[in-house]
Design a protein around this nucleic acid. Structure first.
Length: 262
DNA sequence: AAGTAGTACAACCGCCAGGCT
DNA sequence: AAGCCTGGCGGTTGTACTACT
């Protein structure tokens, strides 16, 4: 606790206070916050001065709303790090931890809440299984794909097998140049993907297989472009989707994923 | 036009870790 | 080792502004 809290000013900063603080930082540099109120001639506590400088007055602070790229990064980093706002902000030039935290609390938490409510409504209005379909799974296995993506109701084979069965393969099949073991492992992962998990559903997290350029393209053109998403910045293996995105995705794929669940 | 509700964000508070004495 | 100081963090609150009725 600060000493003499009754004597120091609180609340919004005035222009004069800002000027005094900036002059002080300009003259003495950052740090030694306990000396700042005295040096600047401010009737504020050291922490208030520090916070004002770090969150509002620093010249490199970026103003304005978050870009889609930034939002995408925040969502992915939050999933990775949790509420480590300073770490997340550290990856966003010009954004402060307070910025990011406020953004998350006002936009993302609300969105999450709306999603939960939305799911209840969807259970009545839309096919019940839609929001139970996709869950994230960390995946380390990489399979090298050769053919068109049709997942998960397509026949999935390794190249070893497909050489023998080439004539029987349909255009929906997925053929991999990886080993049979890798493909088997991948199929296991796919099954695992379809298990349900309430926490993941709440967030609408979807994780897609890695290293498949055609999937990247398909995802970008069919789903993300609906929202003018900057596809250049999207890592298709790990990002968050709105319910509406999932809905579009499932519709695009003829709801085959949903059917496979039943 | 006035009152109310909702939103966005600045600011505060309690707590903690690390350094210093 | 213990206590104090400082910087830093995340959670919460306060408040100005906007939208809605």
């Amino acid at each position: 606790m600060e000493k003499n809290t009754l004597l120091v000013r609180k609340g919004a900063w005035t222009k004069q206070e800002d000027d005094l603080l900036m002059q002080c930082i300009d003259k003495y540099g950052e740090g030694k916050w306990n000396l700042v109120p005295f040096r600047a001639g401010l009737n504020r506590c050291r922490r208030s001065c520090r916070l004002r400088w770090l969150n509002n007055l620093r010249p490199d602070i970026k103003r304005g709303s978050f870009t889609r790229d930034e939002v995408d990064l925040i969502m992915r980093l939050h999933r990775l790090l949790g509420n480590k706002w300073s770490l997340i902000a550290g990856r966003l030039p010009g954004r402060t931890a307070n910025n990011v935290k406020n953004f998350w609390n006002t936009h993302m938490e609300k969105k999450k809440l709306a999603r939960i409510v939305g799911e209840r409504e969807m259970e009545v209005n839309i096919h019940k299984t839609i929001t139970q379909v996709i869950r994230p799974r960390p995946r380390t296995l990489h399979v090298n794909w050769e053919k068109t993506y049709k997942f998960p109701n397509a026949l999935i084979t390794s190249n070893e097998n497909s050489n023998n069965n080439k004539n029987q393969s349909s255009s929906n099949d997925v053929v991999a140049s990886s080993s049979k073991e890798e493909v088997d492992e991948y199929i296991k992962w796919c099954n695992n993907l379809l298990e349900t998990n309430e926490n993941d559903q709440e967030l609408g997290i979807v994780q897609f297989p890695k290293d498949q350029d055609h999937i990247t393209g398909e995802m970008s053109s069919t789903m993300l472009d609906f929202d003018n998403y900057n596809t250049q910045s999207v890592d298709p293996c790990n990002f968050l989707l709105d319910d509406i995105d999932i809905w579009k995705f499932l519709n695009f794929h003829d709801q085959s994923i949903t059917h496979n669940l039943n």
